[in-house]
Every structure is written in C-alpha cells, then in structure tokens.
Design a protein around this nucleic acid. Structure first.
Lengths: 118, 118
DNA sequence: ATGACACTGAACCATATGGTTCAGTGTATA
DNA sequence: TATACACTGAACCATATGGTTCAGTGTCAT
C-alpha cells in the first residue's frame, strides 16, 4: 500500500507545489479554457503556460483536446481522491502521535502534583 | 482566501513530492529518529538526509532538537490540516464539475431518445 | 587524552524546473 | 490568397533539487 503509488504521488504533489498550476486548476474548476486564455490570465507566454498544462496533464489532473487551432483544457477525471486519502492517513498519524504526547504531559502533571504535596 | 497561503503551499506540497520525504514522515509517525537512523533507513548519506529533514522542517512538518551529539527529529505541531482543507476544496470543485457533465450527458441521451422516436 | 561517533558546512555535480525567445506549422477569415 | 491567430518545438538561461565527498566541530566512552 506504500510503494505502489510513489511515482504518482511524486507527480501529483509536484504538480500542486506551484502557485500558477494551483491557479490553473482553480480556473478550470470554474470553466474550461484554451492555452491562450490561461497564458493571459497568468501573465505568461503561451509556451510557458503550455509547460504548466503539460505537468498537470502528466499528473492526471487535466486533459486537453485540440479542435481546429485551439486546444481546450479541462479538469481530468482523476480528481484528487488518492491525494486526499494519503493526506487523511497522515492526519490520523499526527493526531495519534499528539494524543500520545498529551498523555505524557498529563502524566508529568500528575507527578508534579505528587511532588508538590511532598 | 486564495493568495494568502501560496508560498506555504508551495513549500508543503513541494515537501510531499519526494518519496524519501514521505517515507521520513511515515517513519516519524511511528517513532522519533536521529538523522543517522533516517539516513541508514533510506540508504543515503548523513548530509543528504539532513537536507531532506531541512525541507520538512522548512515546510513545518517536522521539528528537531539537538541534545548531546544527536539531533532528534519528530513530527511538528503543524500537521496537514491546511493541505487537507485545500485538497478537500478542490475535490468538491471536481465533483461539481462532473455533476454538471453528467447533466449534459443526461440531456444528450434525452435528445437521442427523442431523435430515435422520429 | 584518544578515538570513535553524530552532525555540520562548503563545494561540487547532474539533472529538473520555470521561464524566455524565435522560428516554425496548421487553421480560420477577410 | 494574404493575413492574423493558436499552438508547437527547439534552444537557451538562471536557479533549484537531490545527491555526493571532504574536511571540519563538538561530544561521548575508554
């Protein structure tokens, strides 16, 4: 369950680690867009935006289709389910870890009270 | 609500985009560890592992404390709450988007049935 | 006090990333 | 048919990333 998705997570978290790409996802969440539209929206050359879109496609977040001379980008079917799962798993890890810590702190307090009474 | 966390997300998703670092988080979720332990565990030089830990510290996922000659790494207090939130928000976006799509498909089917009856 | 141990920092290396320009190709439109 | 438009690909650039080696510094154990 751990080794099977490594390279996929590398790609998807990598794709999410750039503000422009997160912005593109947000835009595509509202409406489909051509490369030109996205390039203008994010103050970037066509070529630059095409690279970002390429990364998002590679990660499976976006699909594109070219009709005539314009390539339209839209959200891919893959979504963020697996990333959400991964993150959730680690959130649980964190919580457990700090519940343990709380216990330790609680024990320390008890000891202190005991010492205070001495 | 969008621009305020950009660089933080850059750092945190960037930190998660590497298999070794995800592995380190998993390890620290089970137990604290020294740099040496982690380096051995992931077949890497001390220096290399120290860099990875640095990235995780920078992202706020890990804290370290040096006592004597060993630096112990543990999960930081920050956790993954905000990343979980972000991802959740986009999961909703996706869902809405594909619900719309489903509607369109549904309408197409209806039209087709109508044409079939012609 | 000596040696081993755990880390640290600088320097280096190859490759990846985020961007650009420039020179195309193919498509729509006047 | 000529022109403008949307994209594509190659080449380039600066910086970041993921790793290494090597030469320390400080700490523990004999």
């Amino acid at each position: 369950m751990v080794q099977c998705h490594q390279t996929q997570f590398d790609a998807s978290f990598g794709a999410l680690s750039d503000a422009t790409r997160r912005g593109v996802l947000e835009h595509l969440g509202r409406e489909d867009a051509s490369i030109t539209t996205l390039a203008e929206r994010f103050h970037m050359t066509l070529t630059g935006m095409k690279k970002h879109v390429g990364v998002l496609v590679q990660a499976g977040f976006v699909t594109t289709e070219k009709v005539g001379r314009v390539r339209t980008c839209r959200l891919g079917v893959r979504g963020l389910e697996e990333e959400a799962e991964w993150i959730e798993r680690y959130r649980r890890l964190w919580t457990e870890r700090f519940d343990e810590l709380d216990q330790v702190v609680e024990e320390l307090k008890q000891k202190e009270r005991a010492n205070g009474r001495k």
